[in-house]
Design a protein around this nucleic acid. Sequence first.
RNA 1: GCGGGAAUGCCGGAGUGGUCAAACGGGAUGCGCUCAAGACGCAUUAGCUCAGUGCUUGCAGAGGUUCGAAUCCUCUUUCCCGCACCA
Length: 820
Amino acid sequence: MAYNFKQIGKKWQKKWEEKKVFEAKEKGKKFYVLEMYPYPSGTGLHMGHAFNYTIGDVYARFKRMQGFNVLHPMGYDSFGLPAENAAIKAKSHPRVFTDEAIKSYIKQQKELGFSYDWSRILQSHDENYYKWNQWIFLKMFEKGLAYKKKAVVNYCRKCDTVLANEQVHNGKCWRHTDTEIEVKHLEQWFLKITDYAEELLKDVDSLDWPEKIKTMQRNWIGKSEGAEAVFEINKKKFFVFTTRIDTLFGVTFLAISPQYIDLEHLITKEKKKEVEKFLKKIKSTKQEDIDKMEKSGVFTGSYAIHPLTKERIPVWIANFVLAEYGSGIVMGVPSHDKRDFEFARKYKLPIKIVIRPENEKIQSLVMDEAYTGSGKLINSLEFNGLFSEEAKEHITKVLREKKLGGKKIHYKLRDWLISRQRYWGTPIPMLYDEKGNIVPVPESELPVKLPNDVKFGKGNPLETSKIFLTVKKNGKIYRRETDTMDTFFDSSWYFLRFIDSKNQGKMFDMKKADYWMPVDFYTGGAEHACMHLIYARFFTKVLRDLNLVGKKLNEPFKRLFNQGMVHAEDGFVMSKSKGNVIDPMEMAEKYGADTLRLFLVSIASPDSDFSWNQEGIEGMHRFVRKLFEYFSKVKTGKSNPRTENKIHGTIKNVTEEIENLKYNLAIIKIRNLFEYLHEREISRKDLETCIKMLAPFTPHVAEEFWEKLGNKNFVSFAEWPKYDEKKISKEFEKEEKDVEDLIGDVLNVLRIVREREKKPKKLFVYTLPKEKEIYANNIDEIERRTNLQTKVFAVNEKGKHDPDGKSKKAKPGKPAIYLE
RNA sequence: GCGGGAAUGCCGGAGUGGUCAAACGGGAUGCGCUCAAGACGCAUUAGCUCAGUGCUUGCAGAGGUUCGAAUCCUCUUUCCCGCACCA
C-alpha cells in the first residue's frame, strides 16, 4: 500500500471537523493550551508559525489523551498597521485584506492538522470583540486607570502615530528598525499600569516561565529604592530622585533633561539664546548618536536651593538626563557618580568629596575618576562619620521631618500609552463636548464602530469621516475621540474571550473563566517578553480587581514556553529579500503535514534555534513512510517479554520527554522502538500503544491505522498508555548490550577477514553454558546485522562445529566466535 | 558598560562526574539486493593495531579540583540574545 498522505490528511481533517471532536465543554479536569494568536499577514503562515503551533498542538493532544479536558483555541490579532498600510497602497480597505488573510490562515492551519476548537474562533477586528475593549476601557476610566495627559511621547514617522515605551527599541520603532523615534509633547491616553508595578514585579517569582523572560520583566519594571529631595528653584519645588541620598552634600549642580516639560520657566533671559542653540542641536541629533555622544549641557541661569545646606546650586540642562525617568532632574554629584564627574570636568564645575572609602584617602585635587562605592561620610555636617547605608537612613529621615523629601521607590515602568493616530484599531470610546471636556460614551452605545467613509492618506483617517467625527445628542454637539487603541490592548485579554467567545451580553462569563483560567501552557516567541506578556498580566490583575474574574486569578499564564527561531538553511533569518524562505505549506504539500510536524519538533530541542534542513525533512519523510509500511503489513500476535520491556521503557521515556518539552528526544525513543519492532511479533495492545505514542506528532497516520485496527473511536481521544514498571527489566538491557557487543566483535573480525579476501558466510558462537540462551534468543538480530548464518553452541556441547578450537577462548559475557 | 545563554565529530544536534570515541538524524563511503537503481537492508565514517574485545588523541583555548571530567571550578577567546547615560 502506498503512503497517500494527502488523502489520509484530508480524510481525518474532515472527520475531526464534522464530528467537532476538539470542541471543548466545561466538564472534567481542565487544561488550557494556547499559542500566541497570530497577526494575519498577507503572506500567510510562515515556518515560525508552523513550529509554534506544532509545539502547542503536540502538547494539547498529549494532554487530551491523558484524560484532560483540553481547551485549545485559535484566533487572530487582526487589527494593526500592516493591513492599513496595505490598504493605502492598494487603495482598498484594511478589512478586505484582513478577512482574506484570516481565511487563508484558517485553511492552512487546518491543513497542518492542528486540533483547535474552531467554534471559539475570535478576531480582534470583529466589533463583537472590540466592543469589549471599549467596555473595559470605560471601566478603567471610571476607576482612574485610564486617563489622558500631556506627556513626552515617542512618535514614529513611518507608523504616523505615537508608540508605547515598550515599542521603542534603541531609540527606534519596533516595527521600523530604520526609523528614529521623535520626541513630542502631546496629549494622549494612558493606562495606569504603574499602579500595578509592585505586584507585577512580585508575582514574577511565582511563574513557571523561562528565567530569561522573568529577568527581562524584572528589569523592565526596574524597581529602585532610594530617596527624594526637594530643591527649590525660583520659589518652586522640584523633586529629585536618587538612590544615593548619602551623597546629598556633594551636589554641586542640578542637571535637567532637555525634554523636560516646563523647561522654559527655568531659563533666564540672559541665557535664552544660548539654551535655544543647545536645544536645537540636541533636537537635530539622532537618538543613536546621542547615545554615543559625549556629555554636554548648558547653564540655565537659574539656581536651586540645596534642601539642607541652603547653598545656591546652578541648574544645568544636560543631554544625559532622561525626561522619562525619575522626575527628569538629577542631582549632580561629580565626586561619586561617573556621569556627573565627566560633566563637571567638562564644564569646570566644582567637585566636592563627601564619601571616603575605608582604608583609603582621596583628595579632590588628584581625583581622576568618581568614587562610586560606599564609605564614610565627610563634609556632610552632622552626618559626618556615618557609613553610607546608615547615612541614607538618617538623611532621608531628616528630609522627611523637614518636609523636604523622604523615602521613594521608583519604577522604570511607565504608564502604558495606548493612543494611536491610526484607523485600523479599536476606537477609544470617548467624546468631547463643546468646551472640550471629556465625556465617556455610555455603555449602551457600544460598540463605537469604525466608520467606512474614511480617506486613507496623510494623518489619522478617522478625522476624515463625517459620520464618525460629530455626535449630536440631546441637542448638544460632541466631537468624537479619533485615537484608536494600541493593538496590544486587544491581545491583553483575548485568552479570556476564548473561554466564552460568543457571549453577546458580557466580556465573558465569570464562572467559565473560573473553570478554564489560568492558561496552563502558553507558547510563543520571546520577543513579547516586555510587551504583550506584561500587558496581559496587568489586564488580568485589573479584571480581578474589577471582579470580572475570580479573586484568586492573579496571573494569566501558568507555564510559558518560548520556542526557538527557525532559520533558513543558510543560517540566516528567513526573509523575502534574502530569498531563503521555506513555505511550510509547500512542505506539507510535498511531504504531508505529519512529516512536517514531526520534522519541526525533532530537529532540535523546541526551545533552541535551528536552521531548516531540506535533507533532514526528506529523511523524516522516509521514516514516516516506513512507519506507514510497517503498519500496513504488521500482523498482531503475542509480544514476548523482550518486546514488552521495550514498549514499556519507551512509554516511560516518551511520556517524560513530552512533559518536559523535549519532543526531539521523545521522537528518538519512538524511532528506536520501531527499529526494534521490525519483523518482530507484537500484540494488538502493544501495537495500539505504538500508535498512541505517535498520535500527538503524526495525528493523521495515527488515526488511519487506529481505524485499520478496527477501532471506532478516535486515537486523538484514546487513553495515553501507561507503563508497567514490572515489565521493564534491567536484565533485558544487559542482554541487549551483550548481544550488541557480540555483534560488534563479529563485525570487527569480519572486516579483518574481508581484508584478507575471505568471504565468510557462517558464524559460530561459543558461549558459557548458562549464557547460551541470551545469544540463542537473538539469532535473528545477529543474522540481520552481520548477514551471516549463525549457530550458537555452549562450550560444553558435544559434536559442535569448532574446527579451530576457538571455543576455548569463551569468557563470561564474551563468547568466542568462529567465521567460515 | 550591565545582565543572560552558548561553543561537542563532515553537518545538524543529544549528553551535566565513571556505563562516552560520545545517542539520534543528515551527508559521504563501502557491501548486499538488483537488468539497474535516486528504493530497501547492513556496515564504516579520529588515528594506530588486530580473528577480536587493545592503545593513543579527543567535546573552543589554558589551567585547576578528582582515583576518574565533554560534564565541576578559574581565567581567556569567539558567538548569540536582552537592557543600556535608569540618577
